[in-house]
Amino acid sequence: MRKLGALLDKDARDLLKNPTMVVAVIMPVALTLFYRFSFRDALAAGESDPAMRLLVDGIFLVIALCMSVGVVGATVLVYGIAEEKEKHTLRTLMLANVSAGQVALAKGLVSLAAILVVAVACFALTGVSWQFFGGFIAFTAVGSAPIILLGLVLGLAARDQMTAGLYSMPILVISLVPLFTTFAPEAEFVAGLTPLGGVCDLLLLMMEGNLVSADALAPVAVTLAWTVAGALAFKLLYRKLAQDN
């Protein structure tokens, strides 16, 4: 535990000193603000139309969730681990009897914390009723699991920060797919199959009051499937990638 504590402390402090990470943390917040400004007409209309208001709130929360998990998760993890590899600090840590598993766990937990902090900030900026806050944070945490697991695998696979840029792109893109279907409903089915598609659907069901219904089964299954897939990928590749390091 003492090693994990030291790693958590170090990673959390580094998050605030690393320009790449700071940008990754600010970007979802800034984009949430941008979308709120862009949707100001719809927001005004929603003042007198509850259905419209619910639709706009749903879009805002999907944007906030996808941005927080996708941008922060992909960047903090993949770049963080790749930088440790590139600058040989990961090897130095492992020679100091710290296991790659402890490094991965610390980075995963710090990423989760960063995602949740950013998600709280984004939620506050959306102006959505606080009655949805608990559910939003819970679904953000659940949706973070597969992204964090995939990010850990790609971070260990990346040779350096340049490769990390390439490897983090699929995570980023796949995380943002549900966000774009708010503008292209015909892609809804595909979006529902992405790692965050399930939790976004569950979030919208919660806002409609239909969370406990048959409609929730498919999104739950998708979310579970991605979490299991991420855990399997991590379990299968972790030992090999850690040894290669």
Binding site: R2, A6, K10, D14, N18, K87, H88, T89, A96, V98
Partner: peptide, 19 residues
């Protein structure tokens, strides 16, 4: 062997002492 670049020398040593 490499230490963390955005940390001071003393903070690096304190970190390794803690681990």
């Amino acid at each position: 062997s490499a230490l963390y670049e955005r940390m001071s020398i003393a903070d690096n040593l304190r970190f390794y002492a803690r681990t």
